[in-house]
Structure formats: structure tokens, C-alpha cells
Design a protein around this nucleic acid. Structure first.
Lengths: 204, 204, 204, 204
DNA sequence: AATGAATGAGCGTTCATTCAT
DNA sequence: GATGAATGAACGCTCATTCAT
């Protein structure tokens, strides 16, 4: 149906996508600064110069990757949260999906970990935006939980966000750098348990 | 007394230290790959070539920084933990000191965040070592808490470590990238509260 | 006819040749280690980086020069030898052509002299190959002479080769370092005379 | 007797000699340009700076080596020639001693081969001087032989010198680059035979 | 639109030489 | 005399970017 329209547009998009995909792979493998345009071009099966038809420069590739990918990812997160009813289930779904997505796209996970933690200007904004989306999700979730009476009311929501996001990130990071292979999603339930109940013994 | 001995040794050490300090500053400001030997040399007030009297190459600077600094930092952490009695106080002290140290040495904090999250081989080992020290501290702490009956027994200790370390890192990372200035250590108590009690409401 | 094909191929070859020619000139003038890529590039009318499009590194230029040039030269030598009938005439032709070629390509002669006599590994093989070609030519020539009954049978052929090649090289070397200009080929006949008859008086 | 006087002078001379010897070794192993002052210093057991107390600069070491060593060597050559009576024996002795000396001092032989054949200014003069000494010896020898009636009168003496020196050098050079070990001096007699009689069959 | 040869600024690193001790 | 830490010019090489085809 919508197949014919693509002819012109998609040509470009195919090449564009191809470059983006190659970039993610190459960046993940070697890091942004260690990657060369030539490598990306070779991996994408295009000429070096072609890349500059779609991207302003090397950094622009990275920026666009983040813009697109994070939009995608957080769309999925939102969807996952909406799927569930209680705030507890929402959290569980979120964490599970978070781990699952990063497990499925290892290269992107690596790239994400590297880039969200490095310094270097022209990026800040994009990272922030993404981080805020996570915050939004968590905010809603916490608020709902509080109304449901299952989440404490005396919380700094922004701290809760870092508390959760940080833990998940570290779990992912450990997985990425681990020599052993194991299922990342299996960490979801224990993690959620920690989020909800903490490590302290409950006084009965 | 021991002042004479320095003449020879210290000369070198001073210059060495100066280069290390400059490197931390420059690496923090621009990232490892964006930093040049010339910048470091200029900042340290030495000639480019001088750097190679003390370090094998650019990467070696980074490695030595980590080796020294992490040893220092974790010495402090251990000390802080030993200062307290109950596992609860130990955790509190640890988190507090962690935040305090990184707040006091912002450049090192930035460097630490960048390097622990990037890919690139010849480093893995050094990072691992450091991470394990943290794990050791947390392990002991958790174990003690379990014996004291104030920390749950049904925990994956290695997950707890990531749960705690990840949260703290993220809190630091947010602070580093924040435009507002605020006291990082003020996050300690709320964080510990989250670690111990989680976000869930306690059923009475 | 075959003119169109050049468009792509020749472009590269022209630049490649240009770099090779410049390199011979620069190497001859200052020696391999004293020559810089910048000098070669300037002399060839290309950018420094361009050189690395055609050669792996500085040393690779030298190797390729030798591979090509010595093949060329020894093709000519062989041709010259085959042109003559008697072994005596062959020898005469060989020496004459040898001197003529090196006189015509003074830079290459200088380079050849330097490089065949210096130490430094990654070269040995290439030099050897070349030297052996000369040996082959002389071997055949001597053998034929022996069958013709005009060359002694009690000779170490490998020594004869060095005897001849060494003398010729030294004559060339002297010419190269001489302040006076003189016709190098004029040395051919006297040299051959010495090869054949030696310096001793013939007992009649 | 003259032993006491040395105290002061020799100290210097010892160090000087040590540096010279080390330099020959290092230069021979790696070539002049590939050798560093540090390597020479280390090998000589002195500090880098000390070298500049005895030599103006790196090149000066090379020059002084040649000045001294060639004087030494050619003293021996002369001596060897004077030992013999007939011009024929003189030639035999010269060649034999030449090969023997270079065989005994392999490093110097390598250095000599490299440096007499490379281009690079500030040297010419020293090489020339040495070469002329050889020429002188050969000249006398040939002249005497002519008077004795055993060497042809129709010879360019300067060509004869190159004819002989070149052959010997090439024989040495081959020996130096050979993988097999063999006695270099065994080449002396066959070589002399070639010099005297050439490769041609004598007409009876 | 696509190419890829060409560019040249820029960087890490080396090393001859100096000089304060 | 002797040292060796310090210097900084110089070089080989890389690679993001451009542009003629």
C-alpha cells in the first residue's frame, strides 16, 4: 500500500539507516573517538563522502542516533507502563522491558552507557531530554503508587528516579562488561524487590 | 630530618604529581581522547617530552591515575566503614563519604564516571579491581547486617552491590551534569533510607 | 585506443610514479633516514597524506622502488647479454650497459649504493634477490665462456661474481663521489680487460 | 715507565675509548641514524651528557671513529706490505691482511661498509683520505711490480685500485650479509689469483 | 545522488643536546 | 669531570572533510 511512495524517500532512508546501524556497531566496538568515518562507510557499504550527504559530521551521526533511538526506546517503555494496571506492575514491566531492550540491542546498550557518562559539550541537551523522559515515566508511576497507597509519600521523586535508573544502569553495565553470559532480564524481579522493599528487614 | 632525602626523589615526584594533577584536570575537561599531551604539558608547566620521562605514553597516565586514586579513595572508604559500629551506620558513613569525596574532587569524579563506562580494552582490569573493592566493602557490611538481624537474608549480595553503587553513581552523575550547584552529601541520608526501606509502604 | 582505459588507472599511476621519482631524488640527495615525507611530498607536488594512499609507510616507498627498479635494470642487463654472441662480448656488453644505466640514472645509482651496503633488516630479502639475478647472469656467461674455451675452468663462480660486481660497483661509487665529471662508460673496456687478463704479465 | 703519566690522561682516554667502542658496536648493529646517544651511553656505562664531554655531537663520534680506526688499519696494511719482498707477495699479504682485519672486527667492517657507501656531506673528506691511503699502497705495489716485470705496464693505476678494493669490499660485504659462517681469509688466494691472472684462459 | 582521491592540520612520540647540580 | 632530568623541535602518520567527476 504505502509501498510505492517509498521509492524516492526510502532510497535515502535505507542508506541513512544503513549508516546509522553501522555507526552503532562501530561506535560500540571501538568508542566514538576511536571510530573512523572510513570504518563506518565500509561497514555500511557506502563511500566515505556519502556519509556527509546524510550527516553534517561525525558527531552529528551520534546525535541523530541518540535522537532516534532514545525516542524509540522510550516509546516502548511508555507502552509497557501503560500496559499494566497497578503502579507495582508498571514498575515491574518497566524494569523488565528496560533490561530486555538493552539485552536485545547490546551495541546500543554499550553506546548508551559510554555516551551518557562522558563529558564533551554538544551533547548535554540530548542526553538530558532522554533522562527526563525516564523521569516523567517514573514520576507518574510513583504518583500513582502513592495514591494507591503502596508507595511511600515521603520521597524526593527526582531522587527515586536516579535511584532506579542508576541501579538498572549499573546492572546493565556489569552485564556488558561481564565475561560470563547470563540472562539480563532475570535481574528484573530481584531488582524491583529491592526498589520496593529495600534491603532492610521489615519490622512486623 | 627526612628532609634531605627528598632532594632527589621529590624533584621527580613533584613533577610527576604535577603531571598527574594536570592530566586529571585536562581529561575531566575534555575527555581522554580529546586531550592532547601538549595541553597536559602546558597545564603542568613542563615540556611535552618531559611527560615521557614519567609515563610510557598517554594511556599510561590514565592507568596510573586510576591505580593511585582508586587506592586512595577506597582506603578512605574502608576507614569510614570501620569507624562505625552497626551495619546501618557503616552504610550511612560509606555513602556519605563516597559522595563527599567525589564532591571534593570534581575532576576526578568526572574522569571516573567517563572511564568506568567506556569501552576500550587495556583498562578493564584496573576498573574491575576497583569495582571489586567496593563489592568487598558492601559484602562485609551486608553480612554483618544480616547477623545483626537488620538486613534481609534473601539477597543476592552481588546485586545489592550494583543496586547501591549504581544509585550512588547516578546521583553523582546527575550532580556533575547539573547546572545548579547543590550539596551532594545532602543526598546521603535520603539515599540510605531508600536502600534500607525501599520505596514501598510498610505493611504494619 | 587503449587511451580511455587510462583515465582511472593512470591518475593513480601518475601520482604514484611521481612520488617514486621524487623519493629517489630525495633519498639520493639526503639518504633514507634524513629524508622526510614532507620533502618527498613537496617534491612530488602532493600533500603529505597523499603518499599514504600509495605506500604503507616510508620504508615501503624504498622497498617498492627497489622492487621495480631492479627488475627494470636487470631486464636490461639480460637483454644486453643476449644481444651478444661470445661470452667475451657478453661480458663487455654487460659491463658497458651496467655503467651506462647507472650513469644515466645517477640518483638511482646513489640510492642503490647506499642501500645495498647498509644494515637494517626488512630489506635483506629484496637486496638478495637482486644480487642473485646478477649472479645468474654472470654464471651463465662464465659457463659459456668455459665451454668456448676462453674462460678458465678453475674458478669459483660465486667468487667471480663478487670479483666483477664489486669492481664495477666501486668504479661507480668512485664516479659518484668524484668531484670531476667524466664518462663512466669509458671505464668499461679497461675493466673488462682487467677481468679477462688480470694485472699480471703474460708469460709467453 | 710511561704508566704513571696516564693517571689523568688515561681516565679520559678510557672513557673516550669506551664510548668509541660502544659506538662502533651500536652503529654496526643498528646503523648510524637508528642509533641513539642513550644507547651508546648505556653500552659505554656513562651518562648521556658525558658523551658531549668527548665529542662535539653524534656525528663527531663517527668521524673520530673513522679517523682513528682507518689510521690503525692502514698502518697494519702498510706494515704487511713492507714485510714482503716481491710485489706479488705484497699483494697477497695485503689482501690477506685486509680480509683478516675485517673478519676480526666485524662491527667495524659493517660500519665501514655502510658509511663508505652512503651519501651525506660532512664525511666525504675523511673517507677520501682513507681511500687514498689504499691507493698509495696499491700504487707503490703496482709500480714495483712493473719494474719487476711481473705486472703489466699498460694499466690505469687508479682503476686498478678500484678493481682490487672493490672486489675485496664486495667479498667482505657478501660475507657480512651471509647467513653461513665461513673463513673470510680463505678468499684471499683465489682473489689474488683473479687479480693477477684474470678469468681469461692464457694463450700459450 | 554517489564516489573516493586528495588534502593538510594535528597529534603522539622520539631524541640530540643543554645545563644546573 | 660527570650526571641525567629537562627541553622542544621535528617527524611519521592519521583521518575528518571536501570536491571534481
Amino acid at each position: 500500500m504505502a509501498t510505492k511512495v517509498k521509492t524516492k524517500t526510502n532510497r535515502g532512508n535505507n542508506k541513512r539507516q544503513s549508516i546509522i546501524n553501522s555507526s552503532i556497531r562501530v561506535f560500540a566496538r571501538q568508542g566514538f573517538f576511536q571510530s573512523t568515518i572510513s570504518q563506518i562507510a565500509r561497514e555500511a557499504g557506502v563511500a566515505d563522502g556519502t556519509i556527509y550527504l546524510y550527516f553534517k559530521n561525525k558527531e552529528d551521526i551520534l546525535i541523530q542516533i541518540f535522537d532516534v533511538k532514545t525516542r524509540e526506546v522510550f516509546e516502548k517503555f511508555k507502552e509497557e507502563v501503560e500496559k499494566a494496571g497497578s503502579s507495582f506492575d508498571k514498575l515491574k514491566n518497566l524494569i523488565h522491558r528496560h533490561l530486555k531492550e538493552f539485552q536485545q540491542d547490546r551495541d546500543m546498550a554499550i553506546l548508551y552507557q559510554s555516551e551518557t557518562h562522558r563529558q564533551g559539550r554538544p551533547f548535554e541537551a540530548h542526553i538530558k531530554k532522554m533522562s527526563e523522559m525516564y523521569l516523567d515515566i517514573v514520576s507518574e508511576l510513583v504518583e500513582q503508587g502513592q495514591q494507591e497507597g503502596i508507595i511511600r509519600r515521603d520521597l524526593y521523586v527526582s531522587l527515586v528516579k536516579r535511584f532506579i535508573l542508576g541501579s538498572v544502569d549499573e546492572v546493565i553495565n556489569t552485564w556488558l562488561h561481564s565475561t560470563k553470559e547470563y540472562d539480563l532480564t532475570s535481574m528484573a524481579d530481584p531488582l524491583v524487590d529491592l526498589f520496593i522493599n529495600g534491603i532492610g528487614v521489615r519490622k512486623t
